[in-house]
Design a protein around this nucleic acid. Structure first.
Length: 247
DNA sequence: AAACTATCCAACCGCCTATAA
DNA sequence: CTTATAGGCGGTTGGATAGTT
């Protein structure tokens, strides 16, 4: 049990834990110390910063400050229209996977993109409970996919990933076609409706045939995975292939 | 001019994963 | 194999600022 000494020790330690780390906005002096640390020791080992740089910040806080603000390769200033279009496209594909999206936008951080999307587009998105449900479903499918993936040898997996990539390309083409069929002034409203109906019946067949093929020829089950075109993205990511989709 | 509201964004929190011990 | 730790991620918060009434 506790004697007086251990009790005092525990309590004061708890107090110190709270007091040791500074929080809140960074001062210019703290920024200077952190930059000096990175210059000497490089990025990483963030928990050493307090000891080696004399900063009363925990490792997480230091990493965040560096990654989101001090890094020299950061692009300052407003998001350009081009960058905005990339954000929209990648968000449509991947959802709230901000760090993934940020990798396609050099000099922009996940935090910046997340903030930008939330302030500019959140309102237009579907209601949050719906999104919540989708996120959970997506997580589940990722887990299922990951488990299955480990059952296949690399060659089988390569074939499967190639099929997924092919489907993704088709899907991109289809999106362009749909845009043309549903918005061109060359069609009447009735024709546009018919175009859209035809389009969906065709693309639905494509997806069904891919699902059947994977299932019949490879024993690979894709539960609802292709219902959201964006999900092919994480499938490829999990596959661990060096393919990067170009915009 | 003052009060109120909306927007922006830096920084925090909790959770998860990878890796070291 | 288990546990501890660091780093990474997405969601959220709260203060500052801009805009509106």
């Amino acid at each position: 049990m506790f004697n007086l000494r251990t009790m005092v020790g525990h309590w004061s330690w708890g107090l110190m834990e709270d007091e040791v780390w500074r929080k809140g906005p960074w001062t210019a002096e703290e920024d200077r110390l952190l930059m000096e640390y990175v210059r000497i020791y490089g990025e990483g080992r963030w928990n050493s910063v307090a000891r080696l740089a004399g900063l009363k910040r925990n490792g997480k806080s230091c990493r965040l400050r560096w990654v989101n603000y001090l890094r020299p390769d950061l692009k300052r200033g407003h998001i350009t229209p081009h960058e905005e279009s990339i954000i929209l496209e990648l968000h449509a594909r991947w959802g709230n996977r901000w760090s993934t999206i940020a990798r396609s936008l050099p000099g922009r951080t996940d935090n910046e993109i997340k903030n930008y999307w939330r302030t500019h587009f959140k309102k237009k998105a579907k209601d949050s409970s719906d999104a919540n449900g989708k996120a959970k479903a997506r997580l589940l499918r990722r887990q299922q996919f990951h488990q299955q993936q480990q059952q296949f040898n690399p060659i089988e997996m390569t074939k499967i990933m190639a099929l997924l990539e092919e489907q993704h390309d088709k899907s991109n083409n289809n999106n362009n076609k749909l845009e043309a069929l549903s918005s061109s002034s060359a069609f009447t409203e009735a024709e546009k409706k018919q175009n859209i109906t035809n389009f969906y019946s065709q693309t639905g067949d494509n997806e069904q045939s891919l699902i059947s093929e994977l299932n019949n020829n490879h024993g690979f089950v894709l539960p609802e995975m292709l219902n959201e075109g964006l999900d092919v993205g994480w499938a490829m990511e999990l596959g661990g292939y060096p393919w990067q989709w170009q915009l």
